[in-house]
Design a protein around this nucleic acid. Structure first.
Lengths: 121, 121
DNA sequence: CAGTATAGTGATTAATTTATGCGTACTTGA
DNA sequence: TCAAGTACGCATAAATTAATCACTATACTG
């Protein structure tokens, strides 16, 4: 795995959050797991555009960091189920707040993102 | 500026938030501006480890995207003041929630981050 | 048996973000 | 006049994250 060269900033809660949950799909994965999608395949189909291996990596990190737990069933056909730990569940209010904020401001935010594009024709 | 090659995901509020506010110091800048630090120099001294140019870039993006406004005073000595727009203010509850979450779980989170280090001796 | 589904990995490349080197320009105070 | 403070910016290097290539292995289904 990748070894960081720049020392982490742990001095405030914002950075703790960022260091652990910055991954592109992490919050979405936690959200979908909370919504009942437990199997890797389900999550992959749900998210669609994200590659299987990217999701696997992010899930592994979520497990390693204690947000998600993983049950591997010793069946002939591989079977895996993810679930949220208490720590993972503690993120749900924040995830919902972020999601709500984004949807409430969607019009303005999409316009803001277009600025970027227009700056680079 | 950098031009993205992978199309943005705008399908959910989480990604809208992420695309616009993923920058390493953005939320912290918004927080400090809300706390009354308006001048670039003040913000730079407050954050310390972050380079001047990095903060300037992030502030410029926050302005461009409508979270922060910038007043340039036409005085002999350059003077600039930042302030939050309504959109920027709408983030404050979320920022406080993130900060609180991080501090409430600091012990566990720091241990989780050490996992990373121990995996790479 | 061929096709599809389950789940996964190691190595590599591409994309993106952050940091830095080297400048500008003006003013105040010692 | 020189140091320090105000503020900004382009171009490039470095660091980090995401995406992809090329694979393994087993088991259903038809």
């Amino acid at each position: 795995m990748y070894e960081k060269k720049i020392p982490l900033r742990l001095d405030c809660g914002l950075h703790l959050f960022k260091e652990l949950l910055n991954g592109k799909w992490k919050l979405m994965l936690i959200y979908y797991i909370s919504a009942g999608l437990k199997r890797p395949g389900e999550l992959q189909r749900k998210i669609g555009t994200a590659d299987r291996r990217v999701l696997t990596n992010q899930l592994n990190e979520l497990v390693k960091h204690g947000f998600v737990d993983k049950k591997v069933f010793d069946t002939k056909i591989p079977k895996v189920e993810y679930g949220l730990t208490t720590l993972g569940q503690s993120l749900l209010p924040i995830i919902l707040a972020l999601e709500t904020w984004g949807e409430n401001n969607r019009t303005v935010l999409e316009k803001a993102l277009q600025e970027q594009v227009q700056d680079n024709p």
